[in-house]
């Protein structure tokens, strides 16, 4: 229908625009470039959608800034961001922080999945351990920092341990749940066809529990970032958390804000990466869910 629209119609991307692209292709429309234009407009629309709200927020920030010493404007924070983080601090503070985060996260994943599989497989083990595990999960990890400092000192091992101590629980408990809920018919299938030991673990248990394992890993990622910062606020001399506290104490307010901004961006980047990973690992799950619907 919209293939009959006026040729010079420059209505920005609307639903009608999309219909026209399809209609034009099907009818072999003789207007070259019409489809391309709509595609470009579509891309522009997506970028606008993505940027609109952040831009509005920055504008708001700019409008209210300057009213207080503690709230510098976007330009000042942007300048501070470039000066502070595109410098030796990137190597001295940011990378070690991220490294500890990834190390602690990886350890927690190994530990959580490694313990979760046997616990999930054994009803007796589960009945014994589950109340205790729920208790440990309920303990807020930051309160463990003083304890872990006593046990592991104040260096890297302590910080990694703090991250592990918080990240491991969601991964462990979700793995237990995923392994417990594995399909019985598939388990019988494995028994009938002699699929046992490592191949059973690899092809059945881990894959079957992967939706829950990924849920645990996603929860653990945000906990990990929080604990990375907190572990550096105690008795530390480097790292992102330490630096932000330092700026605050020295009244370098713009620099302090730039650190908060960096943490937000870091969290955003990691969660986007994680979503990629999840889409790849769980392609079958989303596909079969869509097929059932």
């Amino acid at each position: 229908m919209s293939a009959t629209g006026p040729p010079g119609d420059a209505r920005p991307a609307t639903a009608a625009g999309d219909v026209r692209v399809r209609g034009a292709g099907a009818a072999g429309d003789a207007r070259p470039g019409g489809g391309v234009r709509v595609r470009v407009l579509g891309a522009v629309r997506r970028v606008v959608c993505l940027v609109a709200l952040p831009a509005l927020l920055v504008l708001l920030w700019w409008a209210v800034s300057g009213s207080s010493f503690y709230l510098p404007g976007p330009a000042a924070v942007g300048r501070a961001f470039a000066e502070t983080w595109f410098s030796a601090r990137l190597l001295d503070d940011v990378l070690p922080s991220v490294g500890r985060l990834l190390a602690g996260y990886a350890l927690a994943a190994l530990l959580g999945v490694g313990l979760g599989v046997p616990i999930g497989s054994s009803p007796r083990l589960r009945a014994t351990l589950e109340p205790v595990l729920e208790f440990f999960r309920a303990v807020p990890p930051p309160v463990l920092v003083p304890l872990i400092m006593l046990l592991a000192g104040i260096d890297t091992p302590m910080k990694v341990l703090v991250i592990v101590s918080g990240c491991v629980w969601p991964i462990l408990l979700n793995t237990v749940e995923g392994v417990r809920a594995l399909d019985e018919v598939l388990a019988d299938t494995c028994r009938m066809y002699g699929i046992s030991g490592m191949s059973r673990l690899r092809w059945f248990v881990l894959r079957g529990a992967s939706p829950q394992i990924m849920t645990g890993l996603r929860q653990a990622l945000s906990i990990g970032i929080i604990l990375m910062v907190i572990s550096e606020m105690f008795a530390s001399s480097s790292g992102l958390g330490f630096t932000i506290v330092l700026f605050q104490r020295q009244f370098q307010i713009a620099e302090m804000w730039s650190g908060i901004l960096l943490l937000g961006l870091l969290g955003l980047g990691l969660s986007l990466l994680f979503r990629r990973l999840e889409r790849w690992v769980l392609a079958w799950y989303h596909g079969s869910g869509a097929a059932r619907a």
């Binding site: 018919v185 019988d188 009938m192 066809y193």
Partner: peptide, 21 residues
Amino acid sequence: GPPPGTAVVFQEYGRSLFPWM
């Protein structure tokens, strides 16, 4: 236990195939 050389076809076809394969 499951005897060697024996195969089973279950009623629940939707649950006896590995959806990730």
